[in-house]
């Protein structure tokens, strides 16, 4: 199956948001670039037919994680030196190493390609079959995530309070 025009536009938006993340000085603009990328990826998932994943992407990533991030950025001191000087001294070696990695992966992707799909259709990613399978087969991991979230709440409180709760 070939990629259509919407997919190209969404991919361009995603890469553009990622480039904004690299170039922007203020963390708030970096966060907005990341939000643009995440929304574009949600569009890509919807274009693929994975509507459930697209909704999760918007709800959990854009709705929860990035709102948290934006609140934290608003709490920070804007005169921080890392807001002014964006890049560390690893700029050139880092970009060179990642460029080599991308060249290697790209050569593999173009040279070998991707094996043709054996199964067609994304029907399982619609809400009804997904929820049925989710609660019938994957209920144990689902319940374990709630345990994980409780552990995270306790751990976050422990990290913030520190030893003996001296910071209140």
């Amino acid at each position: 199956m070939t990629a259509g025009l919407p997919l190209y536009l969404l991919a361009a938006l995603a890469v553009g948001g990622a480039l904004v993340m690299l170039a922007a000085r203020h963390p708030m603009r970096v966060a907005l670039g990341l939000i643009a990328t995440m929304l574009a990826l949600a569009g890509v998932y919807a274009d693929l037919g994975a509507h459930v994943v697209a909704v999760f992407q918007v709800l959990i990533y854009v709705g929860a994680v990035m709102v948290f991030m934006v609140f934290v950025i608003m709490l920070l001191d804007t005169r921080d030196p890392s807001f002014v000087a964006r890049y560390s001294r690893l700029l050139l070696p880092g970009v060179a190493a990642v460029a080599a990695l991308v060249a290697l992966l790209g050569a593999l992707l173009v040279g070998r390609g991707v094996a043709p799909a054996r199964v067609a259709g994304a029907a399982d990613f619609h809400l009804q079959p997904f929820s049925a399978a989710f609660l019938a087969e994957y209920w144990l991991p689902f319940e374990l995530t709630s345990v994980l979230l409780v552990v995270v709440v306790v751990a976050a409180i422990a990290v913030i309070r520190g030893r003996g709760g001296r910071d209140g």
Partner: peptide, 11 residues
């Protein structure tokens, strides 16, 4: 690249 080159921990 962002993780390697940026200086701000939140970024």
């Amino acid at each position: 690249v962002g993780v390697i080159v940026r200086r701000n921990a939140l970024v």
